[in-house]
Design a protein around this nucleic acid. Structure first.
Length: 106
DNA sequence: TACGTGACTTTGG
DNA sequence: CCCAAAGCCACGT
């Protein structure tokens, strides 16, 4: 135990804790993991796309959604969860950004 | 061990 | 608004 969990694994655990209706950015997750520069690795982990991992809640700092051709699909999932969107078609991350102490702290 | 790759972020034009 | 380049770190081969 107490092994050094690869950033890869840490991301999964963190994303899995994001409550519905909230979203987080790659850089923010990386920052929580203690690697403010590992935003790319976070996205890389998402690339695995595990079905157990609601990576749709993980978007860019700008509020835009990544995932290539799946991006528009994830956007619909976020809308179904109650995530607010802007007229620009981007996530209103300013209103639904997951923060420590939010519903996830339950 | 080294190189290549990438679903990011930031700054500048 | 759009585009481009640089910096960054970890994983796979």
């Amino acid at each position: 135990m107490a092994e050094a969990p690869s950033l890869f694994a840490s991301v999964y655990a963190l994303v899995a804790q994001i409550p519905p209706g909230f979203v987080a950015s790659y850089g923010q997750l990386a920052r929580m993991l203690g690697a403010p520069r590992a935003a790319r690795q976070v996205g890389w982990a998402m690339r695995c796309c595990p079905d157990e991992l609601p990576w749709q809640r993980v978007i860019r700092e700008d509020g835009t959604i990544a995932g290539g051709e799946y991006a528009p699909l994830r956007r619909a999932m976020l809308e179904a969860e109650g995530v607010p969107f802007t007229q620009d078609g981007r996530v209103a991350i300013d209103r639904c950004r997951w923060q420590p102490g939010e519903a996830g702290l339950v």
